[in-house]
Design a protein around this nucleic acid. Structure first.
Lengths: 197, 197, 197, 197
DNA sequence: CATGAATGAGCTTTCATTCAT
DNA sequence: CATGAATGAAAGCTCATTCAT
């Protein structure tokens, strides 16, 4: 009486999700068909529905997965001794290791969020988490005297994270954009914007 | 055999494009069907192909149209006596009159540009124009002593426009985001970032 | 500016419905596929949906059509001078011209009505009409002194029509059943059942 | 290697069949899937195929099972002293204990018999048995002087059983039909139809 | 100019069935 | 005995596009 092995199940689910990710990156959520995903994952269409109830569910799981990746690194920020310096280093890191967070998928997620309430909810929840993290960062910076005390932490965090986040997409607008120079400029922007006094 | 009246032709094309715009906003480029667009425009499918050779062409025209709207206002900037002040006012305007430049459509365009070379080319060309405009703006500001002379005009322009541009999408991430406060914060950011000395 | 010709439209719809009828007779409502119906009608799958919004709608239209045929002949009954005699003749007619009302389709309708509320509603409405017709017939017979006055017209009509109706399906249970002899026996049954005194 | 216990095997088969019956009643032979039946029976699809070689076989077994139920009670009829009275009582019983012989399942069987030769054969065999039983009943009635000697026993039996059998389905045509009144009327019909002299 | 009939490939999803464990 | 992973054909339906009128 062999029971289902949850670990194996999750594993397979993940592999399918990764295949779906590659297809979505190539063709978008609507442009990639279940058939494409099955071919990429090396399974039959019928079998895919053992793991995902519908294409919708795959898109939602994909959204969750794509966003999850983007804020893992920020979480350790607050523990650092000089948080402003750590933050600037993080900006640099993000610019240079862009391939881990495919901007194509994020664009797809944002476009989808525009009209898909479930995806929108996931995006909102993620953004909430990220914003809170940064609000805490700004507050901490203010307490340590590194950040201007007159700035509203919440709005500051939103504007700032947005500016950094979207800088990653600059190469979509201009393929020749130099991410290294962009990161340097961003660091200047952040430094001047937040500077105490 | 009557001749086609080019003005009338353009007029009709525009009306169809506007109908398509409403559909695309609702359902995305792939989610809106030719049938939907025809229904919205009040014409028959056969007739639509009189004005557009394919759905691809509609998407391309739509992209052109959507981007075109977003930079009309910037063009007059350089003529103003105090360009920095004019720029800050423009930021405010953009935040408050968001409905003219539907962020849904822009998200769609960006996602599409990810995988559609023609749309990508349109986006790149548009971004090039915008960036040049702003590079000129930064240079002018530097010459007039309003902007820090040490900033590279090109990169500065890219980072700056991107930050402003993408701030319009903040309400997609957080429906409760206060655009007025966001605009105020953006103005602080721009002022401090560019400030001479 | 050619407008849609409603007559042509109805005509085509009818032809598709007849093709569907043949398929349903062969394979049942669920066993006949849209593809089968299209092949039988000589059209493409996409085109069928110009005329019917879904397979459900085809089944409903089919139900309406199948039932409609069965009660056309009864309607003239009440106008006859000797209605009992006319009724008995009608029983005979029904037995011998069974091919016009394919029992396969009626079985399918009844089975479908078991779990499809829309089809059930159509069946109920049709039965209501038929029962009313026969209740009137029984009453008229009672007034003319040909039918026993003690019989409740409503229940009598229901039991009677049901017995006649379902006799048509006897050949499904027994392929060798002699419909002529069955009709003769039914006539005896009706005569004795209804007889005044 | 253990041996299969035939009793246990039959038991399990029956339990699956009963689960299938509930599914078929809800959704019809074609509408109920193997998956539904497995869920209802609480077993896995692989296991089901241990007991039934195919869905076809389940349908055939179901048919057998559904028909079997309907004639159990008639068999004791001939042993009664006053068989006509016993018959009338049986009519009443059938009308009031309809839930034992679900008309949904019988409709399904009849519709299926229309196009499935195996199911048709089962139905024919069952009907043959039932008809013979009733032919014997009519003959016995004639010998005892309770039934008109001029009626052909075979045809009489067919028409009569059919009328009673199908009366059970009247509530499918008219959900508000009063089965008690229907049974009373059926008894009048039978009495008058068969009456000697 | 304008219509809508017509196409056919392709979509997501379901389902009876098989098989390794 | 029993599981559930896996298959692949087929289902109902959509949609961009063409074309006769």
């Amino acid at each position: 009486m062999r029971k289902v092995d949850p670990a194996k199940f999750e594993d397979k689910r993940d592999r399918i999700l990764q295949a779906a990710g590659r297809c979505f990156q190539r063709a978008g959520f609507r442009g990639a068909s279940i058939g494409d995903i099955c071919a990429e994952a090396g399974i039959s269409p019928g079998h895919l529905y053992h793991y995902f109830a519908s294409k919708e569910v795959i898109i939602e799981a994909m959204t969750e997965f794509a966003l999850e990746k983007t804020n893992l690194r920020f979480e350790k920020l607050l523990a650092k001794p000089d948080i402003l310096k750590a933050f600037l280093e993080e900006i640099e890191n993000r610019a240079l290791h862009c391939e881990e967070r495919p901007p194509e998928l994020l664009m797809e997620v944002r476009a989808e969020a525009t009209r898909n309430p479930v995806v929108a909810a996931i995006l909102h929840r993620w953004w909430d988490g990220l914003r809170h993290l940064f609000t805490a960062f700004v507050r901490e910076g203010q307490e340590r005297g590194q950040v201007d005390k007159n700035l509203d932490p919440d709005i500051t965090a939103a504007i700032l994270v947005n500016a950094i986040e979207s800088a990653a997409n600059l190469s979509l607008k201009d393929p020749k954009f130099d991410q290294q120079k962009g990161a340097d400029m961003l660091k200047i922007l952040v430094t001047r914007f937040l500077k105490a006094e």
